[in-house]
């Protein structure tokens, strides 16, 4: 079995085009915050623009998917959305990854890590 990167980051059918953003498909809040803080803003903007363009299609799909028994493909799509949320305020409010005039946002990493808690 070949082991391409695309295969390790599977997405639901019809969303293969988002695989180019696989680096944003991060399962934990801590990882997403770290990437928000370390990624140069042009790359953040590119991700924001790319995801915003696909938003109607993504939400239409997720509205049909139940919240339980999530497949690995759906989970990856969710992680891409969570990363979009994570960087949206960097783009729309702050103009950078940090919370401007705020504390270190890494202080705000959910301590829940179990079924019913954060998806992790």
């Amino acid at each position: 079995m070949s082991n391409t990167v695309e295969q390790t980051f599977a997405l639901p059918s019809g969303f293969e085009g988002l695989a180019k953003f696989r680096a944003w498909g991060l399962p934990t809040e801590g990882e997403r915050i770290a990437r928000r803080l370390e990624t140069p803003m042009p790359e953040v903007q590119e991700y924001y623009d790319g995801m915003m363009a696909e938003l109607p299609k993504i939400m239409a799909y997720l509205l049909e998917r139940p919240a339980t028994n999530t497949t690995a493909e759906d989970e990856n799509l969710l992680f891409l959305m969570f990363s979009l949320h994570e960087i949206a305020q960097a783009v729309e409010i702050y103009g950078c990854g940090e919370v401007v005039d705020g504390a270190d946002v890494r202080l705000f990493t959910s301590v829940l890590n179990r079924p019913g808690g954060e998806v992790a």
């Binding site: 939400m59 997720l62 998917r65 139940p66 919240a67 999530t70 799509l77 949320h85 998806v119």
Partner: peptide
């Protein structure tokens, strides 16, 4: 959350 879209809104 009933759907994954609800999960997205929570986040």
């Amino acid at each position: 959350a009933k759907t994954l879209a609800d999960r997205v809104c929570q986040d």
